[in-house]
Design a protein around this nucleic acid. Structure first.
Length: 399
DNA sequence: TCTGGGGTCCTAGGACCC
DNA sequence: TCTGGGGTCCTAGGACCC
């Protein structure tokens, strides 16, 4: 009506990705119940093969429960570096179908296929072509959803997994989603679903017709407005290639609880080194540091964060800040997880024109240059070749 | 059964400035 | 002498996603 052409958005979602990669690489695993996840103690399921899912095993389930349900399952530790490589290969295949590919995670992506009918035919033919190409080039299967927007395409790709292909009928979108449960709305999790149910809203159709003020009372005004738009099949978010990173972190759940500064600090230092390296690899500087502790008691999570005086990408600055933040947390209680994250990321260090920079800023700059040099040595000769004094070597870093 | 690790976004309250 | 309201920045916590 306004001359705008309907969009064609495709969502591609790999089937049981981590498990499927492991089976592809070791065909003796085919047909077996397979769980990728861990560590065995205090671990959760990252991905389960469809054979294991038949026993009720699913992602995010504690490993102990998964093995109680499916004791004969083979358990493999995730190989994230390897999955990242396979993912990059998949994204390259997808890029042959559209110039606008938006990865959502290692195993899913949106493609803007508007205007691609001339090359690939109608939506169903496009989807078949993508599935064939992914399988031919990676020996992996995926499910595909096609619709006029991101929400519907993503919802559609999940409806007939594995190997699914669902095209949401153009022009009949709202009717298509109306009977589905609210949990299918992107952004509605267990909490929001509960609150919506308390207000008598169980299906997407009911949310679409709900009074917007009542919806806002139930789940808040932002989420309420958002889910009502989705429920009405309205979603104008574009498919975009370049997402600026907002934060970067590293955390670890320890095999045994620790308590006290002396026990926590080395763990914290190792996380800082990993995060700093990630910053330098991405060419970013941090504007703030956040420390995270999860206490065993009550599974309680506590965070403390602070801005940096000058943006930094060196582990010494991150650790000095993290250590100060640690002092503001309870260090007597048993801790199961220690994490560090950086935020307020900038692509470049702000130019420092001070004639007499404070000693701390000068030290951070020297330290950054040193760590950049160490990065180059590690890249060339391997991670184990060099470590900082007092630092645990890259014990747990896959790279 | 006892809860990973990587993220994004929202909310609410406080400080501060005008 | 007492009291505004808006805007911005920051922090801590939490829901949600894969």
């Amino acid at each position: 009506m306004d001359g705008e052409r309907a969009r064609i958005v495709m969502h591609v979602d790999m089937d049981a990705f981590y498990a499927a990669v492991e089976v592809r690489d070791d065909p003796t695993l085919a047909g077996r119940a397979l769980i990728v996840g861990g560590p065995r103690r205090r671990g959760v399921v990252a991905t389960a093969s469809y054979e294991a899912r038949r026993f009720g095993v699913h992602s995010a389930m504690p490993m102990a429960r998964a093995l109680a349900l499916c004791p004969h399952a083979t358990v493999l530790a995730p190989r994230m570096g390897h999955y990242a490589e396979v993912s990059a290969q998949i994204m390259r295949v997808l890029a042959e179908f559209s110039p606008v590919v938006e990865p959502l995670s290692l195993d899913e992506a949106f493609l803007d296929m508007t205007g691609a009918e001339r090359l690939f035919g109608p939506p169903e033919a496009m989807a078949r072509a993508v599935q064939r190409a992914v399988r031919a080039r990676t020996a992996l299967s995926c499910s595909v959803g096609v619709a006029c927007n991101k929400f519907l395409a993503k919802l559609a790709s999940d409806l007939e997994k594995p190997g699914g292909l669902v095209v949401v009928p153009f022009g009949a979108e709202a009717a298509f989603v109306a009977p589905l449960p609210v949990r299918r709305l992107w952004g509605v999790g267990p909490r929001a679903a509960e609150r919506l149910a308390a207000g008598g809203l169980g299906t997407i159709g009911e949310v679409a017709r709900a009074d917007s003020a009542a919806l806002a009372r139930a789940v808040g005004s932002a989420l309420g407005a958002h889910v009502q738009r989705l429920a009405r099949a309205e979603d104008d978010r574009p498919v975009t290639r370049d997402h600026a990173r907002v934060s970067l972190g590293a955390e670890v759940t320890l095999a045994e609880d620790v308590r006290g500064r002396a026990a926590i600090e080395p763990v914290l230092r190792a996380r800082c080194e990993r995060v700093a390296r990630g910053l330098r690899r991405a060419g970013l500087c941090a504007g703030g540091v956040r420390v995270k502790l999860r206490y065993s008691r009550g599974f309680r999570l506590a965070t403390r964060q602070a801005r940096l005086e000058h943006p930094a990408d060196d582990s010494a600055t991150l650790f000095a800040t993290a250590r100060a933040l640690l002092e503001r947390l309870d260090l007597r209680a048993p801790v199961r997880l220690v994490g560090v994250a950086v935020y307020a990321l900038a692509t470049e260090r702000a130019p420092q024109l001070e004639l007499f920079p404070p000693p701390a800023a000068r030290a951070a700059r020297r330290r950054s240059a040193l760590e950049h040099a160490v990065d180059r040595i590690r890249d060339r000769f391997g991670a184990g070749t060099i470590a900082f004094g007092g630092a645990s070597p890259d014990d747990d870093a896959p790279d």
